[in-house]
Simulated scan of single mutants.
Amino acid sequence: MSTSRADLLNRAKALPALSVADLATLTDFLHARTGMRFGEAKRYYIDRRVADRMAQRHLTSFADYQALLRTEPSEVEQLINSFTVNETYFYREEHQLSCLSQSILPEIIQSKEPGEKIRIWSVPCSSGEEPYSIAIWLLENWALVDAFNVEIVGSDIDTEIVAEALEADYGSRAVMRLPPELIQRYFLPSEDGRVRLIADLRESVIFTPCNITDAASVARQGRFDVIFCRNLLIYFDAIARVRCVENLFTSLLPGGYVCLGHSESMSRISERFITRRFPQAIVYQRPEVT
């Protein structure tokens, strides 16, 4: 017999908070697998999510939950999913999309023939708003979009959010920055006032699971001309940040570009990138020769 959400909430509320030692054990575990660093300041956030997972698995002691994490990779995946932050919407940081079509791509195609592949990676992609935004933006703003084989890949460590991205069903907040004519052109009405991206656009983006701090996971994605990795580095400590940036560098083709979030910078992380100050945005380029 299935357990109701109310029962699970009550069961989770009845569980004790993590001890100081258990909190340290859990945060070290998460850091080793995701690069994200949590601490005492995030105690309520951590206790709530661990309690939810323990209630789901009918466990009452953290020691038992630790044992489960050691034996069930699927539970590790579920725990990580519960800790990821998926705040996004269409056309977020639009100036970078403008930079993509007006400055970055015109440079990239100087070394490509018509019909050649251009690979663009959105990581983390959350529920798909960013990679789908890239697809819509290029259709609307780059006259040469059909002259090249543009491949857009969206990746995220959260496997549940990747499944949501594939569905591409969104509430009003997700599309609040889109002009009404674009919503009419690229979306269909869904249930409860939601909208769903048209099939052609859903099929134009490839979605994959990926842990950006794990070199093997990143290598499986191949190499890219442009990477959007926005508002992720702020969740990492210094060591994980360097590891992430090294993986991004390796993932770029020579001469490729990476776009970070507006509050992020390569300057204190790596000297391997060239800082490019375009009229629309500051981005970072892998040198043609390294």
Rank of each mutant, 00 (worst) to 15 (best):
S133Y: 04
E87H: 14
S155V: 01
A21Q: 11
I206G: 00
R43C: 08
R223C: 10
G154I: 04
Q280M: 05
V226G: 05
R53D: 02
Y45E: 13
N149L: 09
R276V: 08
T27F: 06
E40F: 13
F90R: 09
K13W: 06
S263R: 06
A12P: 01
Y45I: 04
S267M: 13
N149S: 14
Q96D: 05
F62T: 00
D214M: 07
C244G: 02
V245M: 14
A135L: 01
G171S: 10
V50F: 11
L139P: 00
S270E: 02
F148W: 12
Y257T: 05
L248F: 02
E129V: 00
L30M: 15
R196G: 01
A163M: 09
E151I: 00
T159L: 08
T3C: 10
L188N: 15
P180M: 09
Q56D: 09
R286T: 00
Q280H: 11
I234T: 10
S251D: 00
L97P: 00
L188Q: 14
R230F: 13
E288V: 14
N141T: 01
S251M: 04
L23G: 03
V175E: 10
G128N: 06
E288S: 13
S263M: 03
A174F: 02
T3K: 14
D192N: 13
S217P: 03
R243C: 03
D214K: 13
F249D: 00
R92S: 02
V50D: 09
P124G: 13
A6R: 14
A32E: 14
I206T: 15
L253S: 08
P16G: 05
R5H: 12
Q285F: 02
S122L: 04
Y132A: 05
A135I: 00
T213Y: 08
D200W: 04
S217N: 03
L69M: 09
T290Y: 11
E72A: 14
L59F: 08
D237H: 13
S270H: 07
A215K: 14
R185H: 04
V162F: 05
R5W: 08
